[in-house]
Design a protein around this nucleic acid. Structure first.
Length: 478
DNA sequence: TTTTGAGTTGTTCGA
DNA sequence: GTCGAACAACTCAAA
């Protein structure tokens, strides 16, 4: 039988693998690289880098149990058929994915394989609650407000405890042919990944040790520390979770086990973030058009600006607002950005620059190692104000206040913007207001060693509010 | 069906 | 510096 690996690159708590291993006969792990089947969101550069490493780790973990990872590329259905033909397999198991194009593709594949007489089964390995199991009482409609959704989840039967990895994965007498991982050409041709390499250890064992470390030492501080950009107050498990190196059930039960008198608030707040991930999948499943369209239709007429020069400045971290620039540079260097700072840079792009959330979503998609279609869509639409349960449009982050509040000493700013490193607080949060002596002392020449602000906060804010107001009024008249 | 309460992460203004 | 109110209605969810 075949186990088709997708976004579940782990051995533990992997129902497809586990059920396959329990059956008679050999179980053959397969991965198929088919990015054209993921349009319009094929994995971006940072994701491909991670995928390469994670597949490598998975192959090694399988080898340690006397098995192998068979690697193919092409059309998924054809490759599955071929591997099945080479091995005589008549059964195919996999764990579900929820991206709209993948759901459609998998439905077709399942129907075709059924027709050919294969036994096909899919399992839940990626979510605490399947999107179709959490619905409004009585009406059976999906939720569009987080709090109500999460309350319903918490009232639902608890997610099952994670299963351990199978101890034996029976090998076939003859292995089917496989590509070498390098033949997928997932790694960048120009080596831009040094910073990412230095920051992350893809693969299940790296993920597990991060999880244990965080749960043992830091989760009890989560409520207190999570908003401070310069500290390691968050778990940084997002890429591991995206690629399925960890299951949300493992995180859920691990966190619950740490819940005691002192840590209740933090553990609940932490689990709530897993809840947001669940909510994102819930919305993507029930409103599949939202990966490419605003959920609130009036926003399809919103007057976004096409300003490629401003967009470039945002992408490169040269807006002149230190907190925005630090975030964008952290992203570029490490493939990740602190959650609080993601909100600030997203608000800045959509409100201050008034550039469409889709431009932001594309950039994040290409540069984040944790790029996840459900989370990316929800996050950007939430900030832009065009999604379900979105921030009210008048909620516009002030980049200076956010910086002062969540990085008071400027630790984070100094780490990512070396040219401002010698500027003292409070000026490091707003260099354009710094007195000449402070700038001289820090050897900064505004407009040359570090840019002046690309827009002024007050006027950009006023204009954004006016634009939203016009759209709202037009919508209400109609 | 109608009613009622509530809604992740904020900012600014004026007292 | 601190505090509460206004921002502006609207939609969702549950009783």
């Amino acid at each position: 039988m075949l186990v088709w690996f997708r976004l579940d690159l782990r051995l533990s708590d992997n129902p497809a693998l586990r059920r396959a291993a329990e059956r008679e006969g050999p179980a053959i792990p397969v991965f198929i690289w088919a990015p054209e089947e993921e349009e319009p969101w094929p994995p971006g550069g940072a994701s491909r880098w991670w995928l390469h490493r994670s597949l490598d780790a998975l192959g090694n973990d399988l080898a340690a149990r006397g098995s192998r990872l068979i690697v193919r590329k092409g059309r998924s259905l054809e490759e599955l058929r071929e591997v099945a033909a080479e091995t005589g397999a008549r059964t195919i198991f996999w764990n579900r994915r929820y991206e709209p194009t993948i759901v459609t593709r998998d439905d077709v594949i399942k129907a075709e394989l059924d027709k050919s007489g294969f036994e096909v089964q899919s399992f839940n390995a990626g979510l605490l609650f399947e999107p179709w199991t959490i619905l409004q009482k009585g009406t059976d409609r999906p939720y569009q407000v987080f709090s109500a959704f999460w309350k319903a989840c918490l009232n639902h039967a608890e997610p099952p405890a994670p299963e351990s990895a199978p101890t034996v994965i029976k090998a076939p007498t003859k292995w089917p042919r496989t590509l070498a991982l390098d033949e997928l050409e997932l790694e960048p041709k120009i080596d831009w990944a040094a910073g990412i390499r230095a920051t992350w250890t893809p693969g299940e064992s790296g993920a597990k040790s991060e999880l244990t470390r965080y749960m043992k030492n830091s989760v009890r501080q989560y409520a207190l520390q999570r908003n401070f950009a310069g500290r390691k107050g968050t778990s940084r498990l997002s890429p591991h979770l995206h690629f399925g190196e960890l299951s949300p059930r493992e995180i859920w039960h691990e966190a619950k086990a740490r819940r005691d008198r002192g840590s209740g608030e933090s553990v609940d707040a932490y689990l709530r973030e897993l809840g947001w991930r669940e909510f994102a999948y819930h919305l993507m499943f029930h409103f599949p058009q939202t990966t490419n369209e605003p959920l609130r239709p009036e926003f399809s007429k919103f007057p976004w600006k096409k300003d490629s020069r401003a967009l470039k400045k945002w992408q490169k971290g040269l807006t002149g607002y230190p907190v925005v620039d630090a975030g964008m540079r952290e992203l570029w260097a490490t493939g990740w950005m602190h959650n609080r700072i993601r909100l600030v840079v997203a608000s800045f792009l959509t409100k201050h620059l008034r550039i469409s959330w889709e431009e932001g979503a594309y950039w994040f998609w290409d540069t984040l190692v944790d790029a996840d279609l459900a989370n990316n869509t929800l996050g950007w639409q939430w900030t832009a104000g065009c999604g379900a349960d979105a921030a009210p449009y008048f909620r516009i982050f002030n980049p200076v206040l956010q910086s002062e509040r969540f990085d008071p000493e400027g630790t984070y700013l100094r780490r990512w913007i070396p040219e401002l490193a010698e500027l003292e607080a409070p000026w490091i949060h707003k260099p354009w207001l710094a007195p000449a002596e402070a700038l001289d002392k820090a050897r900064i020449q505004l407009g040359s060693t570090y840019p002046l602000p690309v827009v002024a906060h007050e006027s950009a804010r006023r204009e954004a509010l006016a634009a939203f107001e016009r759209v709202r009024r037009e919508h209400n008249r109609a």
